[in-house]
Write a protein that binds this DNA or RNA. Sequence first.
DNA 1: TCGAAGATTGTCT
DNA 2: GACAATCTTCGAG
Length: 197
Amino acid sequence: MGRILPRDFFDRETETVAREMLGAIIECRTPEGTAGGMIVETEAYVGEHDPACHAAVGRTKRTAPLYGRPGLSYVYFIYGVHWCFNAVTREEGLPSAVLVRAIEPVSGIDLMRSRRGPKVQGVNLTNGPGKLCEALGIDGSMNDLSLQKYPLVIRAGESLLDEDIAVGPRVGITKAVEWPLRFVIRGNQWVSRAGSR
DNA sequence: TCGAAGATTGTCT
DNA sequence: GACAATCTTCGAG
């Protein structure tokens, strides 16, 4: 298993971090056990000038971690049903983050299956922001934590070539949808398909 | 204090 | 493909 990505890794251009997070391993340790997966899909949210970013409406109690140090987690509850996990990037005062939209299970797969339920099969285990959070056991208690220590860490994975990475418009939002800030591993079957209709 | 909207998912048609 | 579920946050009254 690779080294834990240092805080410096996140203290760069958000698009760069989003691109290089592909292939990295996210690992979550809970009392029930440890589960981890390779990141195969990310989206960049780049500050107050990005109308789709939560920070576009200004600093609130909810978006406070976005304004914090690079390398923090930002976990938020959406639609009253699902959690979404982000890694905060850039220096303090510039609120941007990378949304992890899909992972490929690597470890603790039985644990993920038991959390997601017996009916869930195949790629449905983790091919969406809400799904991967449930599978890994991420919830509100994981918000605003350092990603350099447990329970939640991101480890270096295999390095990818440019031709392994596809860039496209973001998914599931209503503002600035056409901005090419979505990064996926080309051809990976675990990539989320939400919104690709 | 109330109403509206949201970086989604599961289920039904 | 369409729609409901369900909660947190924000802005208006």
